[in-house]
């Protein structure tokens, strides 16, 4: 495996990690808000906050890791995306900022302000929508290079069915992943009331996930036939595996059994879909301007980054394990018996 492929694989893995942990977080915000306005907050909100409080900052770092990494490994992405995404990127930052801080304000400061919770819940759905735009743009067709100036074609983006199908997929995926995880968490906590509500959410959002994925496929075919053909001819099996995992997961949740296994299958479902999408996207990072092997940083830096990455993992994996052990796998904590 050459360095640039290694680099992009590592980064893609982190983005996948972010996809999972952030979806849980984003969806949880939405459910917490929903719980509040439908007066079910006494059932689910404590559970949600028990999970989120210790980990939300970690979630954010996953994302920072990805974008610092991609700019480091592939500096020309900074140039193209940077110039093009000034406004959408800034809006995403502002949403992230509102979300993070209002989470803290609500949770540690003044408990139960509906306004804070609304901001926190609403941004949870808007952020995935705006971040997924970066992926949409990477399909090409939304940037134009005119005498050395990168121009962002916002009108095309807004008029594109592909772009909207990606937005739809990102939102329903967030709700599905989150509900599946929280059902598992509620199950561990032996909290039947919360589990029943969250399980209903999970089942409710499961069919839309698949419908939205199909929509993305259909519109990708129109938008970027090269990518579409590669996806269905070379990587069809990844998407097939994804579908199978989805079915197993939904079935288990439906049967009210093995919620943990079900969540692992949800993770696998997104793993296969995400990597199938990523692999078929290559060699382009930004179609057709940024190509993997041309845009990679100089070799010295790439090697240095990889070394640091490995050393960093040695530090992080045990620490993350400790975090999970204390807050995710510690049944007493999950049940709220330890503070």
């Amino acid at each position: 495996m050459n360095l640039e492929l290694l680099g992009i694989t590592v980064l893609w893995t982190f983005l996948y990690g972010y996809l999972i942990v952030a979806s849980i977080d984003f969806g949880a915000g939405f459910f917490a808000y929903y719980g509040k306005i439908t007066k079910k907050d006494h059932l689910i909100n404590d559970l949600i906050s028990r999970y989120l409080s210790p980990v939300w900052e970690v979630t954010n770092v996953f994302f920072v890791f990805f974008f610092v990494g991609i700019v480091g490994f592939f500096p020309s992405t900074a140039y193209y995306f940077g110039t093009a995404l000034l406004i959408p990127g800034s809006i995403a930052i502002i949403l992230l900022a509102i979300r993070g801080s209002f989470y803290a304000f609500n949770n540690y400061g003044s408990r139960n302000s509906t306004v804070y919770l609304f901001l926190y819940g609403a941004t949870g759905l808007l952020i995935p929508a705006s971040l997924s735009t970066a992926l949409t743009i990477s399909e090409g067709g939304f940037l134009k290079v005119e005498n050395d100036k990168v121009v962002f074609l916002a009108k095309e983006l807004f008029a594109s069915p592909y772009s909207w199908s990606v937005v739809a997929l990102s939102i329903v995926s967030v709700l599905f992943i989150s509900a599946a995880f929280l059902t598992y968490y509620a199950d561990r906590a032996n909290d039947r009331g919360a589990r029943a509500i969250l399980r209903k959410f999970a089942l409710l959002w499961s069919p839309p996930t698949i419908i939205a994925s199909l929509l993305v496929f259909v519109s990708l075919r129109e938008h970027n036939p090269v990518h579409f053909n590669k996806a269905v001819s070379e990587y069809w099996w990844m998407f097939a595996l994804s579908l199978i995992c989805f079915m197993i997961a939904s079935y288990l949740i439906y049967l009210k059994r093995n919620f943990g296994t079900a969540f692992i299958f949800v993770m696998l479902q997104f793993f296969f879909a995400f990597f199938g999408y990523g692999a078929s996207h290559l060699p382009y990072i930004l179609y057709p301007h940024v190509v993997l092997h041309e845009s990679v940083t100089n070799e010295t830096m790439a090697v240095a980054l990889v070394i640091v990455f490995v050393l960093g993992l040695l530090l992080l994996v045990p620490s993350l394990y400790l975090l999970m052990k204390l807050f995710l796998f510690d049944a007493d904590y999950v049940k709220g018996k330890k503070q």
Binding site: P54, V58, F65, V68, V71, L305, L315
Partner: peptide, 26 residues
């Protein structure tokens, strides 16, 4: 970025490390 990506990258590890233990500490 070609020259200075390394410390920026290391910084994210430092944050990561801090974030994890701060979560545990609190």
């Amino acid at each position: 970025g070609q020259v200075i990506a390394l410390p920026l990258f290391m910084e994210t590890f430092a944050f990561f490390f801090e974030a994890i233990f701060l979560g545990i500490y609190l």
